[in-house]
């Protein structure tokens, strides 16, 4: 269980996250939504230990975020914009990341590596790859170490339809036994994938509900329509 306890983050005097209280259970896929500037990215960065925060605590199964290395060893992260050292090859990058962890090779998850056919292009230089291929590399890296928590930032943006389907299938398949967090503006994808939705607005949690509850409260609407209503209600 990933536990976020009264998390507060400021950039100078601007409060970007205001006492956020959240719990993510194993086996759930949570979509993190909100208008631009609501603090989604900052929340994710805090969870990943990329941003420092003033108040509050984050812990995964009682392992505090302050125990830098141990906490992070349970995380897999797929960034929205991946940019890797230009002059190295895809193969070099994977070798590096594998050698940084002491995880035996047979315990690695190479499914996306195979499905995205990265083996065939592993000697290509990272600086020469197209945006979509970079996304494939990032996705394969995120799942590589069988992490307990997987954080996907716009996982399907830039992927072709086939790769998008592979990615969605992977997310679904791996969701049991993992905590999956997704941000995306493609709400149709989230509608299919997520079991829970966290909606951030004005640097606070507007609501955190399961998909069932959310849909029951607004009968017959798709996630798209619900979010549109919520945003309009704000404006």
């Amino acid at each position: 269980m990933l536990h976020v306890d009264s998390l507060t983050k400021k950039f100078g005097r601007l409060e970007v996250l205001n006492s956020i209280q959240l719990e993510f259970q194993k086996g759930t896929v949570t979509g993190i939504l909100g208008p631009n500037g609501s603090g989604k990215t900052t929340l994710i960065k805090c969870l990943l230990g990329l941003c420092h925060f003033e108040k509050g605590n984050i812990a995964l199964n009682a392992i505090s975020i302050k125990s830098e290395k141990e906490y992070k060893s349970y995380f897999g992260y797929m960034p929205q914009i991946g940019r890797y050292p230009e002059n190295m090859s895809i193969g070099d990058l994977f070798e590096l990341l594998v050698s940084l962890r002491n995880q035996p090779e047979n315990e690695l998850d190479l499914e996306l590596w195979e499905l995205f056919k990265l083996e065939n292009i592993k000697s290509q230089r990272l600086g020469k790859l197209s945006g979509g291929t970079v996304q494939k590399v990032s996705a394969a890296l995120a799942y590589l170490f069988k992490p307990e928590v997987i954080v996907l930032d716009e996982p399907t943006a830039g992927l072709d339809p086939l790769a998008t389907e592979i990615m969605k299938e992977k997310i679904r398949k791996e969701s049991s036994g993992k905590i999956t967090l997704i941000t995306s503006h493609i709400l149709n994808d989230l509608d299919e994938l997520c079991s829970h939705i966290v909606f951030l607005n004005n640097h606070k949690i507007a609501f955190s509900k399961s998909m069932k509850e959310l849909k029951a409260s607004r009968q017959g609407l798709t996630l798209n329509q619900i979010v549109a209503q919520l945003l309009q209600g704000e404006a």
């Binding site: 230990g49 990329l50 992070k72 060893s73 960034p79 914009i81 940019r83 890797y84 962890r101």
Partner: peptide
């Protein structure tokens, strides 16, 4: 500056700052 995105990836690995 160019390597910032990769630094971000490295910082999410099991490494200290």
């Amino acid at each position: 500056y160019h390597g910032e995105d990769f630094t971000r990836v490295l910082l999410t690995q099991s490494l200290s700052r």
